[in-house]
Amino acid sequence: MSKADLTKQPDQVAAMFDDVSTHYDRTNAVLSVGNAALWRIATTRAIDPAPGERILDVAAGTGTSSAALTRTGARVVAADFSAGMIEVGRARNADNPFIEFAHADATALPFDDDLFDAVTISFGLRNVVDPRAALAEFYRVTKPGGRLVICEFSHPPLPLLRRAYFAYLRYGMPVLARLASSNAAAYDYLMESIRDWPNQTELSAWVRAAGYERVAYRNLTAGIVALHRGTKPLSAPVRTNDHGSTNEGE
């Protein structure tokens, strides 16, 4: 069984998700105590997909979130770094003509500039080796005036709840993972990655630094998850980011 560590090496992360791909959605439902579906609904509403729009769903996994986005007639590219996830997703969504699956690295997306009306990622930015490079790529492929929506685990602002939540991650989740997952060890990484992930304010600063404006976040489930949003300016100067590629900025 494969388990990534906090260096988040792409081959380790991909192998870990390949291992859990078959039972991934079921395990998420169990470990989130049923909240995963509610978080997906909130994310879909925030994206507000319209008929004919083209949306990029990064770290789309098996395409569960992508399928929800197509119900209004939007066309979705479901991108993921795990070949196993893509294989399962293609099989499950074979009858949905509005989803296209693509093998892609979030830090080097194989798409043209200014292509998507919306870019979204749910519970995947935390697993990217360089999240700020990924945000720069999201900005590059977003159309001017287009939107970014990130749904990610975060830090409950209330100290008592935060302590209880991290106690669950440390002691409760491993027990449930052994019962529900094909690779329980992978969920040790999940606990570690959530604990070390920046809080809501810091992630908002990263989104703003990537070039998005009107940046805001909303806590879900008392801050266990946060929904971050931003909009790409209609016109902005071209600049070079720290990773050597060009993108538009403030």
Rank of each mutant, 00 (worst) to 15 (best):
A102W: 01
A102Q: 11
H103P: 04
H103T: 09
H103R: 14
D105K: 04
T107K: 01
T107D: 02
A108F: 01
A108L: 09
P110F: 02
F111T: 12
D112R: 14
D112I: 00
D114I: 10
D114W: 04
L115W: 08
L115C: 13
L115G: 00
D117L: 09
D117C: 04
T120Y: 00
F123E: 06
G124H: 09
L125Q: 08
L125I: 15
L125A: 10
L125F: 10
L125G: 09
R126V: 12
V128R: 02
V128S: 05
D130E: 15
P131R: 07
R132C: 13
A133N: 11
A134V: 09
L135F: 08
L135E: 05
A136V: 11
E137P: 06
F138E: 03
R140V: 09
R140T: 06
T142L: 12
K143P: 04
G145P: 06
G146A: 03
G146F: 02
R147C: 03
V149W: 00
C151S: 15
E152M: 06
E152W: 04
P156M: 11
P156K: 12
P156Q: 11
P157S: 09
L160D: 11
L161E: 07
L161M: 13
R162Q: 14
R162M: 04
R163L: 14
Y165D: 10
